[in-house]
Design a protein around this nucleic acid. Structure first.
Length: 295
DNA sequence: CACTTGACCTGTCCGC
DNA sequence: TGCGGACAGGTCAAGT
């Protein structure tokens, strides 16, 4: 589920809520959600404090004072929700909350802090995970495969073009979703940025002109920044660290809007399958010109 | 090389 | 109301 803007929103929330807290205990009843054993927990988690909360691609990295980190991937339905010691009982949750009293049936890991507050890792589909890893091993084990962060200042149009050229014969939608090419883009924001740049999702990368690449580069960054500003997209499960939904889906141009009118040209938005993913686009203003160069 | 399928899981929605 | 199948924002590995 969560893509870069959602993970970044969770990161910001956790930054504000859990930095400096000391961990008292960790429990999990689903080993795939938290594969580390109790001896590692005792040695490297218990009595250590949260010193930073970082993001790389769609990974959330919680650094501990022990020199280890809790590396988390939320996959499709993961949530990291913080609750203070008083918040968890009775009514009073915000109106845009998707989660009630915790733990609930989707809770896979509970991290308890010394002040009795708790961090809940919920994951309905159990695809996500939280792995204790020595901080110096994170690059080797997880992040070395990822392409550049699209919101870094070093991610210029030229850098983007060079990354796209690593997969010249693939269709652009597949390339945007490839985490080795660019980190953090998923199904929602690939559709949204392709619409903004008026590029058909099935366009082979080599057919994109420099003009189109420049426009897609800008569109991608604009879409991601807007989505962060909106607190991400909550189509189903996604909530931030306070349990609140994001609002981007309300202003999405094509995602999950098949059958509606394109806000730019008024033609009907269509949905199709591209590399096995539901793909939303406007057939009129994102035309595929077979055998010709897009301009 | 690049795409497809199936796997990992649970829940929801849609048609019969 | 029940039931089967398709589908859901992510990534793997294996097969074509």
């Amino acid at each position: 589920m969560p893509e870069l803007p959602e993970v970044e929103t969770v990161r910001k929330g956790l930054q504000e809520l859990i930095i400096g807290k000391k961990i008292k205990s960790v429990s999990s009843d689903w080993p795939k959600s938290f594969p580390n054993d109790q001896s590692q927990v005792n040695l490297y988690i218990i009595n250590s404090s949260i010193i930073d909360v970082r993001r790389r691609a769609k990974l959330l990295i919680i650094d501990l004072s022990s020199g280890y980190s809790l590396v988390t991937h939320l996959k499709m339905t993961g949530q990291l929700v913080f609750r203070s010691n008083k918040q968890n009982f009775g009514a009073g949750h915000p109106s845009n909350s998707l989660v009630g009293k915790l733990p609930d049936k989707s809770t896979r890991v509970i991290i308890s802090f010394s002040d009795s507050s708790k961090l809940f890792f919920n994951d309905q589909r159990k695809f996500g995970w939280m792995k204790l890893t020595e901080k110096k091993d994170i690059l080797k084990h997880f992040t070395s495969i990822y392409g550049p962060e699209p919101l870094d200042s070093s991610f210029t149009t030229t850098a983007f073009k060079n990354r796209l050229l690593t997969r010249p014969r693939s269709v652009i939608k597949a390339v945007l979703l490839d985490q080795r090419v660019i980190a953090g883009v998923g199904n929602i924001y690939s559709d949204e940025s392709l619409w903004a740049a008026r590029i058909h999702p099935l366009t082979p990368t080599y057919q994109l002109t420099d003009q189109k690449i420049k426009l897609l580069h800008k569109s991608l960054i604009d879409v991601l920044q807007l989505a962060i500003k909106e607190g991400g997209s909550s189509d189903r499960n996604y909530v931030n660290a306070k349990g609140q939904k994001g609002s981007y889906i309300k202003i999405a141009k094509v995602f999950r809007r098949e059958g509606q009118s394109c806000p730019r040209c008024n033609h009907e938005i269509k949905k199709m399958r591209v590399i096995g993913r539901g793909t939303h686009y406007c057939p009129y203003c994102q035309r595929l010109k077979i055998g010709k160069i897009e301009s």
